[in-house]
Design a protein around this nucleic acid. Structure first.
Lengths: 163, 163
DNA sequence: CTGTATCCTTAAAGATACTG
DNA sequence: CAGTATCTTTAAGGATACAG
């Protein structure tokens, strides 16, 4: 992307996440890895992406610690690391959102566990299990918040209260 | 982005989702909306994005049905629709992934409900509540799968079994 | 098979001046 | 305040030939 702004510099976990996986190909490659693809050619054929682009993405994903190169250096497997596997909830949440709102509700892909039990829709809850919604969710500065973040969240909370 | 490939054409819910929100700014705008921002200027100042870019993104989000323009046409509010609000789990999952793997574990932002109860980490489970992991998750063709998707998933399953 | 190396095209992003 | 209109820069993406 014509990325003039460096997202990873922002004091925001979401921005940092997007700096890693915030472009089309990257998450689709990760998806294929969850499906079991490990080879350059497997990703290439599945996605129809140009080789040089795929090279860049794979390198980026390795650098980011999402993939690990394994096996023969000339014919490596790209394997999801723990960090990469940790993307599953986000990936499924996005897939389900696409199913629900962008398809005709006939999902091209069913997600189950190995026994065939269907996946539940990914939901956000509090620790006690109460559902989080746009209405009841609150964002407050955490320990890692810098001055700017802190100020912004205070401002937002104030504005929201004023409405 | 220099998007030569039209993701929305792919028979894949994830690709369709990414076609909507698959670039840096878009999801950050949505995040700000969850924080309570509604004005052009609020988004603009918060993100530091160029005006023309913001215009494009907001229009895109309105076209996608994620935002709705409300109030005075000359001074509108951009409000999350149901479809937009449905992005919360995906958004939180990405934020939490960024917290966990890209920050120094000092979250810049805490997520709670209105009573102050902390959010749980977004997880993927089966309907009975069993956790889904990269290891036990299976992907099979759904009713909306076309020939290509079907063939690909079969291939992947076969390859995976062969490993 | 897994890349590298080029070259080319396009469009995304940014800056900024201007308008209702 | 909320954009629109230009203009420029840059880099992402694609095609393809070649290499180990």
């Amino acid at each position: 992307m014509a990325q003039k702004t460096d997202l990873s510099k922002l004091n925001c976990s979401l921005a940092k996440a997007l700096a890693n996986i915030g472009d089309w190909w990257t998450l689709l490659i990760v998806r294929d890895a969850f499906l079991g693809a490990t080879r350059f050619s497997e990703f290439q054929q599945s996605l129809g992406v140009a080789r040089n682009i795929l090279t860049t993405r794979l390198q980026g994903l390795v650098d980011a610690g999402i993939f690990e190169r394994q096996g023969s250096p000339t014919r490596p497997h790209y394997i999801l690391t723990k960090k990469g596997k940790a993307l599953l909830p986000a990936l499924l949440a996005l897939m389900q959102w696409g199913d629900e709102w962008e398809s005709e509700r006939r999902p091209p892909m069913l997600v189950t566990d190995e026994t065939g039990e269907a996946a539940q829709t990914v939901v956000a809850t509090t620790r006690s299990g109460k559902p989080l919604t746009a209405a009841n969710t609150r964002f407050t500065p955490g320990p890692g918040a810098n001055k700017r973040t802190r100020a912004y969240l205070m401002l937002r909370a104030a504005r929201k209260a004023a409405n």
